[in-house]
């Protein structure tokens, strides 16, 4: 979820910007030059995937997949997500220059977290472990992103408390969907191309 321009307070924007700069810096240092095309094309794939709307009862939600991005890219997820968000800001003004940092941290930090939490389970030989870990990877990615969005709003002003609560609530159904999709997707990748998840055949 994007926070629009002009909503957050200066300290929140500044902290978001600084954290994003640090995280992207680490991400870039860990991304070698020969990896750049892969990270870039995968981030275009995630950009396109985020335009997919999945039906949920009478409405539909769009995919975020930040757990899966983290799983595949690790720290490189930081610059990958930054690039995606920057393009969205330029192409259709979802988010903008001042919120770029906050939005990047909100989406990419959970991605990196998921990498550290779940990567070792995803490479497990037991199918059940992989499926469950992948479910939680997708769910945790979205949930932490929702929490961070809520925090950004709350630290802007306490009157945002209700809005922040609604943001977290709205993320609960998305959590379930992202969990299911990530689980199936990881199972698929394990079957078709285990190397992409770091599994040696």
């Amino acid at each position: 979820m994007h926070i629009a321009e002009g909503v957050l307070s200066a300290p929140v924007l500044a902290i978001g910007g600084a954290l994003a700069a640090g995280g992207v810096g680490i991400g870039l240092r860990k991304t070698e030059y020969e990896k750049i095309p892969e990270v870039a094309v995968l981030s275009s794939a995630f950009f396109v995937a985020s335009l997919i709307h999945v039906p949920l009862g009478p409405t539909s939600v769009h995919l975020i997949l930040n757990g899966l991005i983290g799983l595949l890219l690790g720290w490189s997820a930081m610059p990958a997500i930054l690039v995606g968000l920057a393009l969205q800001a330029i192409l259709f003004q979802f988010g903008g220059i001042t919120t770029l940092g906050v939005n990047t941290v909100n989406m990419a930090l959970p991605a990196v977290l998921c990498f550290y939490l779940f990567r070792s389970f995803i490479t497990s030989d037991k199918r059940a472990v992989v499926l469950v870990a992948a479910f939680f990877c997708g769910a945790v990615g979205v949930f932490v992103a929702g929490l961070l969005v809520a925090c950004s709003l709350f630290f802007t002003g306490e009157s945002f408390l209700q809005m922040a609560r609604m943001v977290v609530l709205a993320h609960l159904p998305i959590m379930a969907i992202e969990g299911i999709l990530t689980s199936f997707c990881v199972a698929f990748l394990r079957k078709v191309r285990p190397e992409i998840l770091g599994v040696n055949k």
């Binding site: 892969e38 995937a49 999709l181 990748l189």
Partner: peptide, 13 residues
């Protein structure tokens, strides 16, 4: 949809 996303990721990679 998950298989679609998975295929998209593989093709991109």
């Amino acid at each position: 949809y998950s298989y679609l996303v998975g295929t998209l990721l593989l093709k991109s990679s």
